[in-house]
């Protein structure tokens, strides 16, 4: 067991973890932060995506101890009470979420993209989200939502 200190969505946690634990296991099983989903546990689906010190990571293949002293943002950390993040709003409004299981990962991947590239082209959106699988939507409304969110965040309508 080792001591892990990390910040998640602004709150500080200190947990003891086994050396082989993943960040996803710590978030879900230890902290009960459940928006990161277990879709595959092999790094293939992106349902577990979170932002670790500004970088998008798949938390199922990220060793928990890598997050020591760092800051994690999950989907829970995006909205304030009564106020959605523009990406969340766009996903809701444009039907980018059907069953919703891929949605937390998709939104985090979209946020990581827009943080770095506020004005992505369709192609750049596709590329940025290509590690996140969705079986329901055919991605069409997801790509649309990211574009609309970017517009809004850039002060458009």
């Amino acid at each position: 067991m080792q001591e892990l200190n990390l910040k998640v969505n602004g709150a500080t946690y200190s947990v003891s973890v086994k050396a082989d634990m993943t960040l996803l296991e710590v978030l879900r099983d230890k902290l009960h932060i459940t928006s990161p989903k277990v879709g595959c546990n092999t790094g293939d689906c992106g349902a577990c995506s979170v932002i670790l010190d500004g970088q998008l990571v798949k938390s199922c293949i990220t060793n928990a101890l890598m997050a020591d002293g760092k800051e994690v943002v999950t989907l829970e950390g995006l909205s304030k009470p009564g106020k959605l993040h523009p990406i969340q709003e766009a996903f809701h409004q444009y039907g980018a979420s059907q069953c919703g299981f891929c949605t937390p990962g998709m939104i985090m991947a979209s946020k990581a993209l827009l943080d770095q590239n506020p004005n992505p082209t369709d192609e750049e959106i596709r590329e940025a989200l290509s590690g996140n699988l969705c079986r329901c939507t055919g991605y069409v409304n997801i790509i649309k939502a990211v574009k609309e969110a970017a517009k809004k965040m850039n002060g458009g309508e």
Partner: peptide
């Protein structure tokens, strides 16, 4: 928009 959509986009759907 989806009845349960706000839960999905905030990660609160159980």
């Amino acid at each position: 928009p989806k009845y349960d959509g706000l839960g999905h986009v905030t990660g609160t759907t159980m």
